[in-house]
Amino acid sequence: MQREEKQLEATLHAILNRVNDLKTAIQALISKLENEYETINWPTFLDNYAILSGHLTGLSKILQSEVAPSLRSVVVLPLQLGCERDEALARLTEGRVPACTHDLVPDLLRTKPEPQAEQRLQQFNHKASTLSHDTAQKQVAQFTKVISHVWEIISKGREDWEGESMRSAGMQPTHSIADTHALVTAVGTGKGLRPGMPSMGPSGVGAPGLGPSRGPAPQLGPAAAAMPKAPSAIKTNIKAANQIHPYQR
């Protein structure tokens, strides 16, 4: 018996701690909202909700745990019900509940949802159970469609916004697609690098190219070699191509 009492006490103590944490968090939230609403940083303000939800999760964990069942067998018995001000109670509740009146008891000692809420919940449950599978599927699909549409709008907006903020932050472009294409085509196909083929003519003599070296100019290396005349190059081209065929096979 004593062991159970001790357990109950420990559970109550834990719950009390949690509730107090929750209370201080809510108080901080409210005071922030009331006093700093002009200078508040809303994103950090949202963090307060995260704290609240953390406390709530902790509380529900305690209630769900193994020790909780003992609470279920405990009865709360209102001993005194009256309109007169009860100083002890007022002190306990920090002035929020001055008296245990008929007005407050149904709210404070309630173990079920409000009748109105209960009724609506029942209505919804009924509606859901009478719905056919097909309609349900259809509605789910429709909902998904709407959600994905909204998601698209939001992500597009975010992209635009981020792009704008990048631009406004003075980010200059560091690459140009046109230049990429020009360079890649030049290296790949020689576009823009063929100077109308004048380098093939005699004027190309002395060009710092890797032209085919003809004649004695080895001391200069191929970089300063003379280019052959274009017609002769083409002629040899045809002949030579015919000749090399047998080797390819």
Binding site: L193, R194, S199, G209, L210, P212, P222, N237, A240
Partner: peptide
């Protein structure tokens, strides 16, 4: 270079 030239290769671009 000389070898390619004898082979019949032509300069396309450089």
């Amino acid at each position: 270079i000389e070898f390619l030239n004898e082979l019949g290769c032509r300069i396309e671009f450089e």
